[in-house]
C-alpha cells in the first residue's frame, strides 16, 4: 500500500472513531439524539452527556494519544533507540510531578499547568541525558536503565506530593495521574499544542531521517547537529507536557505507535510523523472507549489499557534485540 493512502485511511478512521465513540458508553444513545445534541446543545437532557462528557473526553483522548506518539517518535530519533518513550524515560514523570506541585499550590489554568509540565519535562529529559550520555554515544541499555531509575525517582516525588495533599483532592489527583481522561483540562489547548508541534516536527522531519544513522553521519551529510538536537529536545518536552496536563502519565503510547507504523513499512519520518500522530490518537481513543465501557458504569483510567498492550510488546522487543 502506498504510504499516502495509508495515512488517508488513518485520517478517515480517526474521524469515524471520534464520531462513533459518541454513541458508546454507560447510556446508549441513538443517532438522532447524538445529532440533535451536537447541533443544539440545549435540546434534551441526554445532550449534556454528548456535549459535556463524551465529546470533550473523546477529543481529549485523541489529542493525548497523538501528542504522546509524536513525542515518542521524536525521542526515539534523539536517542536512536526504538524503545524510547516519554513514560519509560521518566519525562512524563517529571512533567506530572511539576503539575502535581502546581495543583497542590492551587493552580488550575491549562496554560499555567502546561508551563509547569514543560519545565518538569525539560528537567527530566536533561537529567536522563546527562546521566546516560557517555563519550558522545548513547548506550541503549544504559539509557533505558537511567530512564527507569529516574522515573522511579519521580514516582517517589509523586507519592510524597500525594501524601501532603488534602484528602479532598486526592481522588482526582490519583485518577488524573493514572491517565483518566474524564479529568482532562482544556481540549482546545491540547489541539493547539498538537498542531503547532506537528508543524515544527514536519519542518525537521527530513533531517530526522539522517539523524537516525548516527550523529557523525548526520553531521557529514550537512546536519547542524547541536541545533537539531536542541529542537527535538524542546519539541518532545513540549508535546509530552501538553499530553501530561491532559491525562497524567499514560504509558507506552509513544513507543507502541511508531513501532506499529514502522511495521507497515513506513520508515521515512516525513510520513512516519503524521502517521504516528493519527495512530496515537486512534490507539488512545480506542483504549479510552474500552476503559469507560468494559465495566460500565465504573470507569478505568486509560493508562491501564495502554500498559496492558505496551508492556508485553516492550518485553518482546527487548528480548528480540538482546538476541540480535
Amino acid at each position: 500500500m502506498r504510504p499516502s493512502i495509508f495515512i488517508l485511511i488513518l485520517a478517515i478512521l480517526s474521524v469515524l472513531l471520534i464520531i462513533s465513540s459518541l454513541f458508546v458508553g454507560s447510556v446508549p444513545l441513538s443517532l438522532q439524539t447524538v445529532w440533535l445534541s451536537l447541533i443544539d446543545a440545549g435540546a434534551q437532557e441526554s445532550s449534556l452527556i454528548v456535549t459535556e462528557l463524551r465529546l470533550p473526553r473523546t477529543l481529549a483522548a485523541f489529542a493525548t494519544g497523538a501528542l504522546l506518539a509524536q513525542a515518542g517518535t521524536l525521542m526515539q530519533v534523539l536517542v536512536r533507540n526504538p524503545l524510547a518513550d516519554p513514560y519509560i524515560l521518566g519525562v512524563s514523570g517529571g512533567a506530572a510531578t511539576a503539575v502535581l506541585i502546581g495543583m497542590l499550590l492551587g493552580l488550575s489554568s491549562a496554560f499555567g499547568l502546561t508551563g509547569l509540565a514543560f519545565i518538569g519535562a525539560l528537567v527530566a529529559m536533561f537529567l536522563v541525558f546527562i546521566l546516560a550520555h557517555q563519550k558522545g554515544s548513547w548506550t541503549p541499555t544504559r539509557l533505558l536503565l537511567t530512564g527507569v531509575v529516574v522515573a522511579a525517582g519521580w514516582g517517589a516525588a509523586i507519592s510524597l506530593i500525594l501524601t501532603l495533599s488534602p484528602a479532598s483532592n486526592l481522588h482526582g489527583m490519583l485518577f488524573w495521574l493514572m491517565g483518566d481522561l474524564s479529568y482532562s483540562y482544556s481540549v482546545s489547548f491540547a489541539f493547539t499544542a498538537l498542531i503547532i508541534g506537528l508543524i515544527f516536527s514536519m519542518l525537521i522531519s527530513s533531517q530526522l531521517n539522517v539523524l537516525i544513522r548516527g550523529d557523525k553521519i548526520a553531521a557529514s551529510l550537512g546536519v547542524n547537529l547541536k541545533q537539531l538536537q536542541l529542537k527535538i529536545y524542546i519539541l518532545a518536552s513540549l508535546l509530552t507536557a501538553a499530553a501530561v496536563v491532559q491525562a497524567g502519565s499514560i504509558g507506552f503510547v509513544g513507543f507502541i505507535v511508531p513501532h506499529l507504523i514502522r511495521l507497515t513499512g513506513i520508515t521515512d519520518h516525513r510520513l512516519l510523523l503524521p502517521a504516528a500522530t493519527l495512530g496515537g490518537g486512534i490507539l488512545v481513543l480506542i483504549a479510552d472507549t474500552v476503559a469507560r465501557t468494559i465495566i460500565a458504569p465504573q470507569q478505568l483510567p486509560v493508562g491501564i489499557i495502554t500498559a496492558l498492550i505496551g508492556i508485553p510488546l516492550f518485553l518482546f522487543l527487548l528480548q528480540r534485540d538482546a538476541k540480535q
Binding site: 526515539q76 536512536r80 533507540n81 526504538p82 541503549p140 531521517n209 537516525i212 544513522r213 548516527g214 557523525k216 553521519i217 553531521a219 557529514s220 551529510l221 550537512g222 546536519v223 547542524n224 547537529l225 514502522r262 520508515t267 521515512d268
Partner: peptide, 26 residues
C-alpha cells in the same frame, strides 16, 4: 555551514548504525 561542507565533501564511516528499519533505497 555543515550543509555547504557536505555538498563538497563526503565521508564513509568505519561503522554503520542501523537501529531503525529502513529499505536499502531509503
Amino acid at each position: 555551514c555543515r550543509r555547504e561542507v557536505a555538498q563538497q565533501l563526503s565521508l564513509l564511516m568505519q561503522h554503520q548504525e542501523d537501529h531503525f528499519p529502513a529499505s536499502v533505497m531509503e
